[in-house]
Every structure is written in structure tokens, then in C-alpha cells.
Simulated scan of single mutants.
Amino acid sequence: MTDFINNVLIPGAAGGATAGLFALAFVVMYRTTGVLNFAHGQLVMLMPLGVLVVSDLWGLPVVLGLVVAVLVLAAVVLMEERVAIRPFVQSGHAMPWILSTLGFSVVLAELMAIPYRAQPVRFPWGISAKAHDLGGIQVSWAEIAIVVAFILLVAALTIFDRRTTTGLRLRAVAQDKDGAAAIGISPGAASRLSALIAGGIAAITGLLIVSTQLVSPELGLTFLFNGFVAAAVGGLDSLHGVIAGGFIVGIVGQTAATYMGGNYVQIAMFSVLLVVYLTRPHGLFGRASVRAV
């Protein structure tokens, strides 16, 4: 049992929390715009890379690096929302925004490769990834931090979504853009705010995952597929669904890696997605959109 906890449950939960953080950003954007942001992997890496550029290459304080990285990330997020997302929200087809967000991700990845010439770099200010023995259970502060941060973020966004005026406005736009516009709620403003919230999730995700990974423009892409599967399994319109989706994806993937080998991880996760969609076409907690005409 201890081997299962150490080899499957703990790393699976940490991996699931990582996938869940990606899924959470997907859901935040999708609920308001109907768009899945395939540039999110690069946005996740922009925060730690920005800190490294300011603090490592320029030799300025880490705190200043954090401030600059946040401002740059916010500017990039708003730029992407304006040029690669909002123009295609009302198109009625998925292909335009798939291509636009993928194109934005390629351009951003090329720009992010410039400072370190596309070489992976260690992030020296991350949370300790050293495993500690707790009665035979091996766990690190980095693993604990990402699970706790994931659950707290989902809880905070759920409260924001249900208990605040701004959250209720975003829900109104998510349910009926035309109806929301008719009562004075701007879908454009809702789209920008959702993009900034997703960008904030990207910043936190990036600073957490580089505790155990090297910083590189391609790193975010490694987790992007897992995040998409987690969002789809939980339901693309469900905030709390990302908890189930994330941990299912993480534990199933880690189980496959431990007992069958790394080559079977993607197969196992896709199989889970297939089974869920055959029985629940909108995900475990998703709902079919119903609109009265």
C-alpha cells in the first residue's frame, strides 16, 4: 500500500493538480467566450521566464522580476484576447479560433526562445522538490503546494462566480451573450476579464511547476493536452468539474506510467476521455446548453 501511495497516488495527485490548473484556465475562458485557448501553455511559461530574464540576465531583484513578469503577462493576455480570440467569438465555427490561438502560441514560443536561445533553464527560486519521509510516505513541499493551490483556486473562483456581482455578470454572459448585452453587460469586457483571470491562473501555474521542471517555451505544451483532457472529462463549463477531471487524469496517467510504461500514458488518458464522452457527452459535471427561442 505504501508503494502505491508513493509511486501512484502522490505523484498522480500532483500531476492531476497541474492538469487541473490548466483545465481551470480553459474553463474560465470557454464559459465566457466559447473558445479554448491553445496558447495557454506558452502563457504559463511566460511568468517564470520573465522573472528569470529580469533577475538572472538583467541582475535586478527577484521581487522586481515578479512585478515586471506580471505586467508583461497581463499585456500579452490582453493582446491575445483582442487579436486572436474576440474577433472569432461570434464566427459560429471552431476552426478560426483554433488556428488563431495556435498561431499566437507559435509566435509567442519563438519570442520566448530568444533570451536563452531555446535552452531549458533552471528556476532557482522554486519550492523545494526534495521528498520528505512522513511515516514511510514520501512527499515534497512542491507536490503539496500545487495540490493546495489548485484546490484553493477552484474554491476562490467558485465563490467569485456565485457570490460577487462581477461573477454573476460573467455567468450571465456565459449563459446568453445577447441577453446579457441587452441588459447592459458588455460581452467584450467579460471576455477581457476572463482572459485576465486565466492569465492569473497561468502565472500561478508557471511558478509552481518550475519547482520540479526546467523553464523552456515548450514545457507548457507538455501539460496542455493533459489540461484539455481534464477540462473535457470534468465538463468545459464546470468550475468544480476540473477537480474531478484533474485528479482522474493525473492518477490514471500515473497508474499507466507506473505499471505499463510511459508509452501508455496518453492512451490511458484518451481512453478515459472516450469512456466519459460515450456516457456523458458534456463531461462528468458539464451541462448541455439549452436556449429558449
Rank of each mutant, 00 (worst) to 15 (best):
V215Q: 04
D237N: 12
Q266Y: 11
W58S: 09
M269D: 09
F150V: 02
I114T: 13
S194K: 03
L236R: 08
L36F: 10
V76S: 03
N226R: 15
G188E: 10
I137L: 14
A257R: 14
R171L: 07
G206T: 01
A182G: 11
A74C: 12
M112G: 04
N7Q: 15
R169S: 15
L111V: 12
Y30H: 15
G234M: 09
V62Y: 07
V272N: 06
T32F: 00
P124I: 01
G220P: 00
F123I: 11
V233D: 12
L111A: 12
T255Y: 11
I144A: 15
G34W: 02
L157A: 03
A203R: 00
A14N: 09
H40V: 02
A13W: 03
R31V: 03
R162N: 10
M47N: 04
A244W: 12
F88P: 06
H282C: 09
A75S: 00
A145S: 13
D3C: 02
P96H: 06
F270K: 03
V70Y: 06
V148D: 04
V215H: 04
L60W: 10
R162G: 06
I267P: 03
D3H: 02
R287A: 14
I201L: 08
D56Q: 14
M45S: 07
A17R: 08
L278E: 05
G220F: 01
G20E: 03
P187W: 06
L224N: 00
G246L: 06
M95P: 04
T255S: 15
G103V: 02
R280G: 09
P87I: 03
L274K: 07
Q138F: 14
L278N: 14
T158F: 12
Y116M: 06
Y259D: 07
I197G: 05
V51H: 01
A74H: 04
L273A: 13
A256E: 08
E81S: 05
T165H: 15
M29Q: 14
V83E: 08
I98V: 14
D133P: 11
G220Y: 04
G250S: 11
P61V: 06
A118F: 10
Y116P: 07
P187V: 01
F150W: 04
R31N: 12
S140F: 05
R86S: 13
N37C: 03
T222A: 13
T33D: 07
V293D: 14
G16Q: 10
F247N: 06
I85A: 08
V215P: 09
V293G: 15
Y277D: 00
G199V: 00
G200S: 09
N7F: 15
F38D: 02
L219A: 09
L52W: 06
R171P: 11
V62N: 00
R82K: 08
L73F: 07
